[in-house]
Write a protein that binds this DNA or RNA. Structure first.
Length: 183
DNA sequence: AGTTGGATGGTCT
DNA sequence: GACCATCCAACTG
C-alpha cells in the first residue's frame, strides 16, 4: 500500500495549483469521491478527494495489494497494455504481453500509480464516483480481516519540478513491509 | 544495478 | 509548444 497527499493551490506539485480547470474539477468537489486523470497520454491514476467542496485536495493511490480477483486483475493489465497501443498488436505481441503479466507475482500487479489504474480496469468514466457509497462499483471498504499496517513517510515521487518545499515534503506514505509498493 | 529513451496525448502557458 | 503525480525495454558497466 502506498499513497501520496496533494494539497490546494499553494502546493506547487498539485494539479490544483492552476486553480479550477476541466481536468481537476473533482478535486474541488465533495470529499470521498474519485478524482481520475490521464498521465503521459496513457496511464490512468486514481485519487480520493479528501477536503470539503471548495477546498481542493486529494490522495493519490500509488499502489495496492490485490488480494481477491487476481486473475481479473491480470486480465485487466493485459487489456490495458493492449489498449495503450496506437497500432493493434500482432498475435505475437499480445502473447508476449500475456506471458509477461502472467509471470508477475500477484504483489506486483498494482505496484505503481499507473498499474493501479490498469489492474482495476479504470477509465475516465469513473471520475466522480462516490467511493464511500456501498453500492458504488468502485469503493473503499474497511478490511476487518487485516491487522494494522506499519506506515513510513517519504518525499513524494516524480514531483521535482515543483521545487522545495513541495518536492521534499514527506507526503508519501507507504507500508515498508508490503511487497506491493512502487520501486 | 543503474541509466536512458520511446510510447503517447491531454493540459496548460 | 512544452510538460508531465508513468512504465518498460534496452542499453551500459
Amino acid at each position: 500500500m502506498e499513497v501520496e497527499a496533494y494539497g490546494g493551490t499553494e502546493d506547487r506539485a498539485s494539479h490544483a495549483r492552476f486553480g479550477l480547470t476541466d481536468r481537476n474539477r473533482e478535486m474541488f468537489g465533495e470529499p470521498g469521491r474519485a478524482y481520475l486523470y490521464r498521465v503521459y497520454g496513457m496511464h490512468i491514476c486514481l485519487n480520493v478527494v479528501t477536503e470539503p467542496a471548495g477546498s481542493p485536495a486529494a490522495v493519490l493511490i500509488r499502489a495496492v495489494e490485490v488480494r481477491e480477483g487476481i486473475e481479473i486483475a491480470r486480465a485487466s493489465r493485459v487489456a490495458a497494455a493492449v489498449a495503450g497501443r496506437r497500432v493493434p498488436p500482432t498475435g505475437e505481441d499480445r502473447a508476449i504481453i500475456e506471458r509477461r503479466i502472467a509471470a508477475l507475482p500477484a504483489a506486483r500487479l498494482a505496484a505503481g500509480p499507473g498499474l493501479v489504474g490498469a489492474a482495476f480496469g479504470l477509465e475516465l468514466w469513473a471520475r466522480g464516483l462516490d467511493l464511500c457509497d456501498s453500492a458504488s462499483p468502485l469503493r473503499l471498504e474497511p478490511d476487518s480481516a487485516r491487522g494494522p499496517a506499519s506506515v513510513e513517510a517519504s518525499a513524494r515521487l516524480g514531483v521535482a519540478f515543483a521545487g522545495d518545499p513541495w518536492a521534499s515534503a514527506p507526503w508519501r506514505f507507504f507500508d515498508p513491509v508490503s511487497a506491493s509498493v512502487s520501486r
